[in-house]
Design a protein around this nucleic acid. Structure first.
Lengths: 112, 112
DNA sequence: TGTATATTCAACCATCTAGTTGATAAGCCT
DNA sequence: AGGCTTATCAACTAGATGGTTGAATATACA
């Protein structure tokens, strides 16, 4: 996958406010106000966080009257998980997978 | 897990240079010079990246003569993966797990 | 002792980030 | 039309980030 996309995803996930927003969206769609309500931030700050999440592809937004409902988008989360899977050999104790993983790494799709 | 630790991990992973370093370390220990060699950066810049990775707990460093060999540490990668697992329901098509995941989320260990 | 190698520290700089306040835009409702 | 709600845009600020160059530290080796 695209390196920049992966960087954007991890950068987006690095902020606890944005992770809180994603956790909320895991329960279903929400408007900007609903997302901002439990957070100790101005609406504008939350709006900025949503922009970051949207540009990273982690959320998408509808448009109903003056509301812009946000919903979780799975693809970047899947890609991030996929990237991390490469390192699973280091902690899951199953060294059967080791050589397969190393081969995949050395195939050239190395540091995504 | 600790929110700050998770933030540090994702922030560290957000940089492609640092991901390249981790990919190299997945093949085994390496010194700072070995890590810097393929990178279009000064040694000092690489040293800074290693400091970030070390503070995030993603690497640890030995000390042999004037060399400070780096090695991959699995725990933060495991924790990051574990955090992402919570969202697996959104892409893996197995909706059997959905309710279990939602329950876990609502238990209160929500937005880590 | 003196030099080469490996690595870090310090200072500096440009850019990005996360927040603020205030103004603006878009859509409903009377 | 006018007012309320929802949300974004614009400008600004403080602090973090990622890079540089130059100096310092630590260890080996002749």
């Amino acid at each position: 996958m695209d390196t920049n996309q992966l960087s954007a995803t991890f950068a987006a996930l690095a902020d606890p406010t944005r992770r809180a927003i994603l956790a909320r969206l895991a329960e279903g769609e929400a408007t900007v106000n609903e997302l901002a309500d439990p957070l100790p931030l101005t609406l504008q700050a939350v709006s900025k966080h949503l922009k970051v999440l949207e540009q990273a592809g982690l959320i998408s937004r509808g448009r109903t009257a003056q509301w812009r409902p946000c919903r979780l988008e799975p693809v970047p989360l899947r890609e991030a998980t996929h990237w991390l899977e490469r390192y699973r050999q280091f902690w899951d104790g199953s060294f059967d997978r080791l050589s397969a993983h190393l081969q995949e790494i050395q195939k050239g799709n190395a540091h995504g």
